[in-house]
Structures are given as C-alpha cells and as structure tokens.
C-alpha cells in the first residue's frame, strides 16, 4: 500500500531535520530583502511573506490528523516541530511589523486596540503562546489529559489567523479566502463521525504527539 511505503520512508526522516531547515526560508527572505529581491518595498513584502509562511505551516499542522485518519499517512512525529516552526514564523512576522514597519511603540499599542485586523492577529499570537510553551515532553507529562484540551486552542489560532489575513487585504481578494476555505475544510474534516473498528493506518487517531 502506498501509505505504508510513505510511512516507511517517513520513519527514516529525523525530526531534527525540520528544525535545522526551519530558519532557511527566513534567512533567504532577509537576504532577498537586503539585496532588492523583494522589490522596491521590502518591508511590506517581508512582513507578508513571513505571515503567509506562518499560515501555511499552521495549515500543514492541521493536515496531520486528517492525513492519518483518511489516508493512513502518519506524520504525528512531525506535528510538534511544524507547530513550533509556525510559531517561529509568527514571531518573525510580528517582529518585522513592530521593528521595521510601525517603528513606534506608542502606535503599536494604539494599532492593537484600534484596528480590528491587528487585534485579531494579536489574539492569534496570544493563543499560540501557551501552545508553544507547552510543546515539550515535560509539559505533556505534567498536564496529562489537560494538555490535549489546551492544544485544541490551535483551532482558535487558525481561525483567527485566517480572519486576520482576510481583513488585512484591501478589497475582496481571492487569496486570503482560499486560505480561509482550506482551514474551514480541514476543521470540518474533524467533525466527520468516527466509525467503530474502522481505524486505518493503525492506532487510535487521538494519540499524543511525542518527540
């Protein structure tokens, strides 16, 4: 079966490779920004590229459970890394906004309070904080069942992130709506009722990610 072959291949891929590769797109984008590769307005471009990467990583994280349930492909080992790297890109996106874009501490606070799309984006970031802080083995052990409940905040994060993207754009634009649609579809897949004794790819779908 194709899924088994993919799983066999994935088992040989160490998780640390993801962490090692994580900074590469950021460094590449920074290099492009410094050398004119992001066009004549590199600040906005860098900010948007980083935000979009973060959103893509969040979506990748959302794919892991349905991929296992509906296709039998097991990527659970990588879920923590994907989530943490998404968080890294959210932080970079936020830093570019703070330091390079707005450049004014007073205005940052005013923007957060006054501008709904920034409020929404900041909300997504704040919801991500406890998730990032508890993405380690010790926290998983210490929190037990509560860990899983806590990490359902991910659903709130992706919904807020999608909304942030839709609201940030001028006009009624297709791209953020495609992202929002993908996120809603991935969340809807979780509502598909489970059939008993029909688990494919082995093991219950709600196993905790470790390592």
């Amino acid at each position: 079966m194709l899924a088994d072959r993919i799983n066999g291949w994935l088992r040989r891929l160490p998780v640390w490779m993801l962490y090692a590769l994580a900074p590469v797109p950021a460094i590449w984008l920074l290099w492009l920004g410094l050398t004119g590769g992001l066009g004549v307005e590199p600040i906005e471009a860098l900010e948007h590229e980083l935000g979009e990467l973060a959103l893509q990583l969040l979506i990748a994280g959302l794919c892991i459970t349905p991929l296992r349930r509906f296709a039998g492909v097991n990527l659970l080992r990588f879920r923590r890394a994907v989530g943490l790297i998404a968080f890294l890109y959210v932080v970079l996106h936020l830093l570019v906004w703070l330091v390079l874009d707005v450049q004014d501490l007073g205005r940052i606070w005013a923007d957060i309070l006054k501008r709904p799309y920034i409020t929404v984006g900041m909300g997504a970031f704040l919801l991500m904080l406890p998730l990032a802080l508890t993405s380690n083995n010790r926290a998983v052990r210490a929190l037990g069942r509560r860990w899983q409940r806590l990490h359902r905040l991910t659903y709130g994060v992706v919904l807020l992130a999608a909304l942030h993207f839709v609201m940030a754009r001028k006009g009624f634009q297709v791209e953020p709506l495609l992202y929002a649609g993908a996120i809603l579809a991935l969340l809807a897949l979780r509502l598909v009722p489970r059939r008993r004794n029909a688990a494919r790819g082995g093991g219950p779908a709600r196993a905790t990610a470790r390592g």
């Binding site: 410094l34 004549v40 590199p42 600040i43 390079l100 707005v102």
Partner: peptide, 11 residues
C-alpha cells in the same frame, strides 16, 4: 514610508 529606502526605511 518613502519607497526606495530599503529594509530599514524610516517612516
């Protein structure tokens, strides 16, 4: 922001 100031263009 004036276009053309690069990555560290001031507002």
């Amino acid at each position: 922001r004036r276009i053309g100031g690069g990555l560290f263009a001031p507002r």
